[in-house]
Simulated scan of single mutants.
Amino acid sequence: MRSFKFIAAAIAASLLASCATTPPKVVQAPPPVEEAQLPYQWTHGHAPKATKDARAAFGTVALRAGDYRWTPTIPDAPAKVVIDRLQQLMFVYKGDTLVGLTTISSGKKGRETPLGYWKVFRKQVKGFSRKYDNAPMPYMQMYDEKGIAFHGGKLPGYPASHGCVRIPVEFAKKLYGLTAMGTEVIIEG
């Protein structure tokens, strides 16, 4: 009972204190920024379309961290990767057909995976991080000059990397065989 009275008194004191303070300053919205000045390009709705494609291809799928779906591929179509940071999912296309879906672990707060349009420019089966104590990056596919890539790794079920996109190792192996230099990578969310 004593702690309840203390809490009630503290709430009352804070309410009274807030009445005595000056009203907050009006903050104006910042001026609009040209897209060319942004550190990345805005993306335009690829992830919502990919989510619809996933429902059509795999039905209602509830993936746990580390789960994925993979289907036989279309041989003569180019690959494309769509990553949705918000849903923590990666969608893999061959032409216009969705062939893969997996959970991911993108960059944690303060080291977010950058949004935008990219292309794979380096692939390595046994990659290692130059920045982070030679951390293993199996089936690494780099798409950003700063060293950000997608690769096999630990998937805790939330953003936890230093900026890379971690995917299940078995999925990374399949994806490695599907992509080529110049494969389009779209990151949204």
Results as ranks from 00 to 15, higher is better:
2 R>D: 13
3 S>E: 14
5 K>G: 04
8 A>K: 10
17 A>K: 00
18 S>E: 06
22 T>R: 12
22 T>F: 13
25 K>Y: 11
29 A>Q: 12
33 V>S: 08
36 A>Q: 10
40 Y>M: 02
43 T>M: 03
44 H>E: 13
48 P>Y: 09
50 A>K: 08
59 G>H: 07
60 T>K: 14
63 L>I: 02
68 Y>D: 07
69 R>H: 09
70 W>E: 07
73 T>D: 08
76 D>N: 15
77 A>L: 09
79 A>T: 13
79 A>P: 01
82 V>Y: 03
86 L>Q: 14
86 L>H: 09
88 Q>A: 04
97 T>L: 06
106 S>C: 11
107 G>T: 01
112 E>T: 09
113 T>L: 03
119 K>S: 10
123 K>F: 03
126 K>F: 12
128 F>C: 03
130 R>Y: 09
131 K>T: 14
133 D>S: 11
133 D>A: 15
134 N>G: 15
140 M>Y: 01
141 Q>S: 13
143 Y>Q: 00
147 G>W: 07
148 I>G: 00
148 I>E: 00
152 G>L: 00
153 G>A: 07
155 L>T: 05
159 P>T: 05
161 S>N: 05
162 H>K: 00
165 V>F: 04
170 E>Q: 08
171 F>T: 01
176 Y>R: 04
178 L>C: 10
178 L>A: 11
179 T>D: 01
186 I>W: 06
